[in-house]
Nucleic acid binder design. Sequence first.
DNA 1: AACCGAGCCAACCGCCGACTA
DNA 2: CTAGTCGGCGGTTGGCTCGGT
Length: 276
Amino acid sequence: MVRAPCCEKMGLKRGPWSLDEDQILTSYIQKHGHGNWRALPKLAGLLRCGKSCRLRWINYLKPDIKRGNFTNEEEETIIKLHEKLGNRWSAIAAKLPGRTDNEIKNVWHTHLKKKLTKTNSETKRVTKKPKIKRSDSNSSTITQSEQASLSFHEIETSSSASASASACTSSSDFSSVTVGESKNTKSEDIESMETISPIIDESFWSEAAALDETSTDMSSKNSLTVSNEILPLQYSSNYDEIFQQSHDYNSNFDDGMDFWYDIFIRTGDQIELPEF
DNA sequence: AACCGAGCCAACCGCCGACTA
DNA sequence: CTAGTCGGCGGTTGGCTCGGT
């Protein structure tokens, strides 16, 4: 079935709402309510689609909307709820009276995610994220937003055997991924591995163990080509050494896991090291 | 003063499930 | 059962603002 567009675009206004439009919408809803969003703009005399009216009302004009900065308590609540619920913004918003899902989503992407990353980096080594150039167009693509959604705390460690990530189709799916302990992984590695990408599965570890760890090409300037086979081994058994190599190579690297994290989700890519 | 890049956030888009004719 | 509508949701975008150079 082909879904009809939500509104007839021709002749309908888009973009930011004017004060007049806000007043018209507000007074109409206060008088008549919003029984049918689709019919509302016509009845209210607005050149907007119903969806746009609904969004404007819910996110901005509703009288119980709380404006202004989020308090520390609200931020903490969002962080805790996000740990439990993932990207279910409306569910999170339901727990925060006066805050909208859109607002919470924005505050998450602009403030809280960074805040959490910063918190993580205080306890972990953090490196500067290198630019990554895709070298395999057939490999599974991870969008910018998916990548952005993969904050460290979203992936929990467990003693289960493997991470079953192939079924993940959206960023929110990642929140439930668990990462197993490898039989050939040192305990200190495990501690650093809270952040392993969900694409890793059991074969990752067994194949890694069988490979020759000398095949990494760290020699070419500003470019580290990483094969699918090499990195798992590097990470699983030789993390510290590789980290040191990259750190020596570029002394301006910050410490941390972002670098390795990216490599994990991008194995097979060419990693471009930043120039200094 | 002009330019530029990063950050922010309101608004839009596309999809989905519920509902109805 | 099918087709269509609607409200709601999460992801994404683009324009504005601000700070740095």
